[in-house]
C-alpha cells in the first residue's frame, strides 16, 4: 500500500485525469447488494470529485442515499486525452446534494461542467425545452483510496494510495 495522503490531495496523475476526462464509470451498490455502473462526466475542484444527475435518471441517487460507498474509474484514452495515458480507480464515500434541484447545482459545479462540456452553457439558456433534465442533484465523492496503472495496463500491478479520513 502506498503512502496515506491528506484528504483532497490526490496524486497529480489522478488529478490530471480527473481534470480532462469526459467520462468515468461510476459504480454504486443497489439495495440487493449488486454493483450498478453509470457512465458519468467527472468534475474535480481540487479536493472532491463531483458528478451530477438529472432527476430523470435518479435511481443512482437513491442507491447512494442507501449506501454511500462508491467507486469510479477512468479507463478510456479517447475520453481522457492526456500524455502517457494511465488508468485509475478511486473508491470513496458519496453524498447527494440537492437542497435546490432547480439551480443549486449551477453555482456549485456549473463552471466545472461547462469547462468540459461547453454546449451546456447554451443549453441551460434553453432549459424550458427540457425542464426536468435541468432539475439536478450533485453527487459529491470524498476519495478514500485508489489504484493507478501508470501505463494503462490493468493486468500489471497498480500503485496504490489512500487518503486520511477526516475525524
Amino acid at each position: 500500500m502506498g503512502a496515506t495522503r491528506a484528504t483532497g490531495a490526490l496524486p497529480a496523475e489522478v488529478e490530471e485525469l480527473l481534470n480532462v476526462a469526459l467520462v468515468a464509470e461510476f459504480t454504486v451498490v443497489n439495495p440487493q447488494g449488486r454493483p450498478v455502473t453509470y457512465p458519468l462526466i467527472p468534475l474535480y475542484d481540487g479536493k472532491l470529485i463531483y458528478m451530477t444527475s438529472s432527476v430523470l435518471f435518479s435511481k443512482k441517487l437513491e442507491h447512494i442515499k442507501a449506501n454511500p460507498r462508491v467507486s469510479l474509474t477512468i479507463t478510456d484514452p479517447i475520453a481522457a486525452a492526456v500524455d502517457n495515458f494511465r488508468r485509475v480507480t478511486i473508491q470513496g464515500d458519496a453524498r447527494v446534494i440537492e437542497d435546490d434541484l432547480h439551480s443549486g447545482w449551477e453555482g456549485h459545479i456549473g463552471d466545472l461542467w461547462i469547462a468540459k462540456e461547453p454546449i451546456v452553457k447554451e443549453l441551460i439558456k434553453k432549459r424550458f425545452a427540457m425542464p426536468l433534465f435541468w432539475e439536478r442533484s450533485i453527487i459529491e465523492v470524498t476519495p478514500r483510496r485508489g489504484l493507478i496503472w501508470s501505463n494503462g495496463n490493468t493486468a500489471e500491478p497498480p500503485q496504490t494510495f489512500s487518503l486520511e479520513v477526516a475525524a
Binding site: E25, T27, P35, T37, N67, V70, S71, R87, T89
Partner: peptide, 16 residues
Amino acid sequence: VIAYVGDDGYPINVAA
C-alpha cells in the same frame, strides 16, 4: 469495466 462489491462493502471497478 468489471465491477463488483468487495468484502469491505465498497464496490470496485476496473478496466479489462
